[in-house]
Amino acid sequence: MNIQVLADLWPFMVCVITLFVIGFYCLIVTLNLIRALIGIEILIKAITLLIIVVGYVSGHSALTQSLVITMIVIEAVIITIAVGLVVGIYRKTGSLDSRNIRNLKG
C-alpha cells in the first residue's frame, strides 16, 4: 500500500466525463433510432477509456486489458442485436423516427 498523488489522472477524467455528457445528450435528445445507438456507442467508448486509465494508474493494466477485450466483444454483440431490432422496426413502420413508435407508453 503506497500513497500516490496522481496529478496526471485528471485530464483523462475530464475527457471521460465529457464523452459521457456527449453520449448521454445524444441518447436523450435524438429522435433517430440509429443515432441513439451511436450515443450508446460513445458512452461505451467513455467507459473503455476509463477502465484503461484506471488500469494504467493503478498498475493493473493486464487485468483491465482483459476486461476491455471481453467488454468489446459483448458491445459488438449488443449493437448487432440492436441493429437487428432497428431494421425490424424500419420494415414495419417505414421510418426511423422514434416519434412514430410511441405505441407503448410507459
Binding site: L27, L33, A36, I40, L43, I44, I47, I51, M71, I78, I81, A82, L85, V86, G88, I89, K92, T93, I101, N103, L104
Partner: peptide
C-alpha cells in the same frame, strides 16, 4: 411492431444501466 419496440426500449435502458455498472 410492439415486440420490436418493447425490446428496443429495454435494450437502450439496459445499456445505460450497464454503462453505470461498468
Amino acid at each position: 411492431i410492439f415486440s420490436f419496440e418493447g425490446a428496443f426500449k429495454y435494450l437502450v435502458l439496459s445499456a445505460v444501466a450497464t454503462a453505470m455498472m461498468i
